[in-house]
Design a protein around this nucleic acid. Sequence first.
DNA 1: GCCATGTTCAAACGTTTGTTTCAAACAGAT
DNA 2: ATCTGTTTGAAACAAACGTTTGAACATGGC
Lengths: 235, 235
Amino acid sequence: MAPPETRERLLDAAERHFAEHGFAGASLREVTAEAGANLAAVSYHFGSKEELFLAVVSRVVAPINEQRLELLDRAKARAKGAPLPVEEVIEILVGPVLRSATRHGTRGGCLLKLFARTQLEDATLWKRIVDGPLREVKTRIEAELARALPHLGPRDIAYRMHFTMGAVKSVAGELHMLKAFSHGLCDPNDIEATLRELVSFLAAGMSAGAKPRRAAKAARRSPKTARRSPEGRSK
Amino acid sequence: MAPPETRERLLDAAERHFAEHGFAGASLREVTAEAGANLAAVSYHFGSKEELFLAVVSRVVAPINEQRLELLDRAKARAKGAPLPVEEVIEILVGPVLRSATRHGTRGGCLLKLFARTQLEDATLWKRIVDGPLREVKTRIEAELARALPHLGPRDIAYRMHFTMGAVKSVAGELHMLKAFSHGLCDPNDIEATLRELVSFLAAGMSAGAKPRRAAKAARRSPKTARRSPEGRSK
DNA sequence: GCCATGTTCAAACGTTTGTTTCAAACAGAT
DNA sequence: ATCTGTTTGAAACAAACGTTTGAACATGGC
């Protein structure tokens, strides 16, 4: 049967509060007030504040990792054994995170903030969330990057993967600040533009030290728009 | 006269607690217990928990920005009007952050964590800290990047600056996780290696879409081996 | 209609929190 | 020895916290 309406309202309200204030800074009384629910409902439905937090974060993070794996499977099927271009691998890693903002309407801003914030919470809380799906994502993405960038050793890949995932989290968490930070030049609501810029930035960083390959060049020409000059950035 | 010893002990203990638990998650009773000070000493020396937090963060962030400006002044003096290489500009931005870890001995880990965490605290708290020095750093760094990368427009610079600063923060905050994250391949205690890798990654990302310039090419050939050209990055 | 189950509510509880108060101790100057 | 300013400490305060409890309500099955 469908979960009770109260449970959903609690998750929604808690999501906003945990995103904005963190685990310790969020108050159950404020969460339940905003949800229009009784304080005891938290214990009834989730068991504790910590379980509520885990439920909130899981429903944000789990779909992101599922999408990543799905996109990776599809891309590999299309590539028929050829290495995936770096940009595509990075897009698979980053796209589901930023796009979660647009996919969920008004939840967008705090989904990203919650995603970013989760790492800073207590390590045991975090570990309960990330084991499993994220590990698989990371392993497979690193394997694809190794194939796409054979000049890089495993240590390089590991460093750059760490930098990349860090950048994604941070950008996600501070997207709301982008407009002010850029004095109005960048529009945080334009998720697709931000995604293109970020993918380009990270793919270049990931590829540092490599000569552009023919396949990579082709991939750069292909993506989403008309032909462009070999070195030119679109638009 | 020298500040009282109690005040310093409170700042040190508070730094560890705010780094580990955030503003809301840190308890004054635990901070003062660790500092060997009375609870009322916080109000006496700082006025409130919030003022204590601001004092802690300022003494971490202020030196970083001072160093950045100093390094930038020195680099520009040496360059005698020529644009600075991208790698050097990025190193000026990133170096003081990561090196704060080694410069302060055992404080290192939590300095970085505190630096990373500060952004996620209440916006009004954050704004009180960053206005002024960080704004100047950002303005001048962006100007240097524009000179080094004339193919990029201000919007590109703004995006990439946002990505870069986000990556730095995140990497700083999660350096302690690098060993586990890389299955032992990377050593978070090797700050200089991590810095080199991060600078390379970010400089490449920042330069995306540009043809390598002769100076940049020379710098890339130089790094870890034989003597290098005048444009080469300083040790 | 009765019973069982699931859900919600108001209230209370024990704990923790940051701040405040007042007294005591300390250091330095006279 | 006294005075003053600074610093520290113990205790109390009011508020907030998350969790627990028992009662009430709604629903469905028999």
